[in-house]
Design a binder for these strands. Structure first.
Length: 465
RNA sequence: GGCGCGGUGGCAGAGUGGUUAUGCAGCGGACUGCAACUCCGUGUACGCCGGUUCGAUUCCGACCCGCGCCUCCA
C-alpha cells in the first residue's frame, strides 16, 4: 500500500484498489443510487446511507470539493401497487416516505446530499435519452408501447458484474417476454395500463423503466463522465450494469471511473429480505437503540464487508461507544489543536479504502491516552486530545454530542434529571454521614430504574444504562 | 449451473512475509467505604492439505465450509 497521501479505493469494475484520480483536480463528483420510496427505509438502506456519508465526510476532510448526488425513485411498479393498496395517490405516498426517509437520515447523522433528483422531475431528460438510444440503434420500441434496450448491441455488457451475456440469456430465470427481442433486454419505457399514472411519449403513454432514470439523472447532474458511482450490493446487477450500457451508448463517453458497492446486511446470520420477513426498518431499530449506536455498529466494520444485525452486536456497539464517550466526560475540549500523530494514523487507515474499522482503533487509542492523562492530572493535554477525538469522530459522524447528553438520553425510567440529582444529593449526605447502607440503597434503587452513578473526585455523575 | 466474496482468539473486527491490532466479554491487580468509571496486567487466533521461502496467518495451488448475485430488493 502506498504511503503517500493518495486515497486508495476499491472499484468493483477493476476488482482492486485504485488510487483516486479525480477528473477535475480537488473535485469529486459522486452519484449514489438512493431509495425507491414506497416504504420506510430499512437497515440495508442505513448501511448504504452511512457508508457513503462517511466516504463523503472523509473526502471533504481531505480537502476535496465533493458534489454528492443521491436520487429518489419516486415512480415505479412497487410504488403504484402500494399506493393502490393504500388507496392513496402515488405522490401522496412518495411524499410521505420521502419525509420519513429524511427523518431517518437526520437521526443517523447522515448529511444531506448536495442534490437529490427525483425521477418524476426528469421525465423530459429520460425521454431524450431513450430517443437517443433508439436513434443510435441501441433500443427499440415494441408493439405494445414498451421500449427496450437491446443488450446485445452493447459489446461490453456484463463488464461490471462479470457476467457473460450468453449465460444470462441461457438462464431460465430471466423474464421471457414476447415483445422482447432477447430475454436479456430490459425496459427503458413501460406502457401504462389504463388508469395508471403516466406521461406521454413518442411511444405512447407510459412511465420510465427503473434503470434509465439513474442514467439520465446522473449524467444531467454530474456530466457524461464522473468520478464515483455507488450503491447497495444488489444493485451491481442488473441495475448498474444497465446504467453503464445506457449511459455509454447514449453519450459515447466513458461513464464512471470508480464503482463502489457497500456490503450486505444480515439479521441473526440470515439474509435480511422482505420474503423472509426479517427486515427491520430504521425507525424500528431506533426505537430500541440510540441512533449513534446504530451508526457506530455500522461504522465499526468495513463498508464492503457483510454485517450481521443482532441484539448482541448492537449491545456490544453500545458498550464500546460508551467507552469513547466516557473519555470525553467532564473534559472541556481545547479550542484549537493542530495535527497530531493520531490524525496522521487516522488518515493513513482511512485513505486505504475508507477503513473505518481501522479508524475506530485510532479513536480508542486517543480515548485511552485521554484517560491516562486524566489519571495523571494532565488536564491541558487531555483537553487537546479530546478535541482530536471529537474531530476524528466527526469524520465518521460520531461523538458530536455532549457526553452528558449522550449518556442521559432515553428517560424511559420516568425520572426527571432533577429527581435524579436530588437522589444523588441524598446519597452524598448519607455517605458524609457514613450511612453506607442508606447510600447503597439509593444507588440500587436508581440502578433498578436504569440510572447508573459514577463517583469521582469532582463529584457524582449519572448515566442511563 | 455461471460469476463474485469470505473463512482470524469466547464474541465483534482490522492487519501483516519475520516484531502476532483494537474493542466487548472473562480473569488478576490498583483506585473506591463498597461499587461504577478509569488505569495496569492477562489470551502466541489466523478453515484444511500441499508448495514457494531461512521463515506464511499473510504469496501460489488443491480441498472443505459459509455467504452474495444471477429475479423486485440497498
Amino acid at each position: 500500500m502506498s504511503t503517500d497521501n493518495a486515497i486508495q479505493l476499491y472499484s468493483t469494475l477493476s476488482q482492486k484498489k485504485e488510487a483516486l484520480r479525480t477528473i477535475e483536480p480537488g473535485k469529486v463528483r459522486m452519484y449514489v443510487c438512493g431509495m425507491t420510496v414506497y416504504d420506510y427505509c430499512h437497515l440495508g438502506h442505513a448501511r448504504v446511507l452511512v457508508a457513503f456519508d462517511v466516504i463523503t465526510r472523509y473526502l471533504r476532510h481531505r480537502g476535496y470539493d465533493v458534489t454528492y448526488v443521491r436520487n429518489i425513485t419516486d415512480i415505479d411498479d412497487k410504488i403504484l401497487r402500494r399506493a393502490d393498496e393504500n388507496g392513496e395517490a402515488f405522490d401522496a405516498l412518495t411524499d410521505r416516505m420521502i419525509d420519513a426517509m429524511h427523518e431517518d437520515e437526520r437521526a443517523l447523522g447522515v448529511l444531506a446530499p448536495d442534490d437529490e433528483p427525483r425521477a418524476t422531475a426528469y421525465i423530459g431528460q429520460i425521454l431524450e435519452m431513450i430517443q437517443t438510444l433508439i436513434d443510435k440503434g441501441y433500443a427499440y420500441a415494441a408493439d405494445n408501447g414498451d421500449v427496450y434496450y437491446a443488450v446485445q448491441k452493447f459489446e461490453t455488457y456484463g463488464k461490471l458484474s462479470k457476467k457473460k451475456l450468453e449465460d444470462l440469456i441461457a438462464g431460465a430465470r430471466v423474464d421471457v417476454s414476447e415483445v422482447k427481442r432477447s430475454p436479456a433486454d430490459f425496459a427503458l419505457w413501460k406502457a401504462a395500463k389504463s388508469g395508471e399514472v403516466s406521461w406521454s411519449s413518442p411511444w405512447g403513454e407510459g412511465r420510465p423503466g427503473w434503470h434509465i432514470e439513474c442514467s439520465a439523472m446522473s449524467t444531467c447532474c454530474l456530466g457524461n463522465t464522473f468520478d464515483i458511482h455507488g450503491g447497495g450490493p444488489d444493485l451491481m446487477f442488473p441495475h448498474h450494469e444497465n446504467e453503464i450500457a445506457q449511459s455509454e451508448a447514449a453519450t459515447g463517453k466513458h461513464f464512471v471511473n470508480y464503482w463502489m458497492h457497500a456490503g450486505a446486511v444480515r439479521v441473526n446470520k440470515e439474509k435480511m429480505s422482505k420474503s423472509l420477513g426479517n427486515f427491520f426498518t430504521i425507525r424500528e431499530i431506533l426505537d430500541k437503540y440510540p441512533a449513534e449506536v446504530v451508526r457506530y455498529f455500522l461504522v465499526s466494520s468495513h463498508y464492503r464487508s457483510q454485517v450481521d444485525y443482532s441484539e448482541d452486536n448492537l449491545a456490544e456497539a453500545s458498550n464500546t461507544l460508551a467507552r469513547l464517550y466516557q473519555s470525553l466526560r467532564g473534559v472541556v475540549p481545547a479550542e484549537t489543536v493542530g495535527e497530531t500523530e493520531f490524525d496522521r494514523r487516522f488518515a493513513e487507515v482511512m485513505s486505504d479504502d475508507f477503513n473505518t474499522a481501522g479508524a475506530n482503533t485510532v479513536l480508542h487509542a486517543v480515548a485511552s491516552e485521554i484517560n491516562r492523562l486524566r489519571r495523571d492530572g494532565d488536564d491541558a493535554e487531555a483537553a487537546s486530545l479530546a478535541t482530536v477525538l471529537i474531530r476524528l469522530g466527526g469524520v465518521l459522524g460520531l461523538l458530536q454530542q455532549d457526553p452528558e447528553v449522550y449518556f442521559q438520553a432515553g428517560g424511559k425510567d420516568g425520572l426527571s434529571p432533577e429527581e435524579i440529582e436530588q437522589q444523588i444529593e441524598a446519597r452524598a449526605q448519607a455517605r458524609r454521614d457514613r450511612d453506607f447502607a442508606g447510600a447503597d440503597r439509593i444507588r440500587d434503587e436508581l440502578a433498578e430504574k436504569g440510572v447508573i452513578l459514577d463517583d469521582s473526585r469532582e463529584g457524582t455523575t449519572w448515566r442511563r444504562a
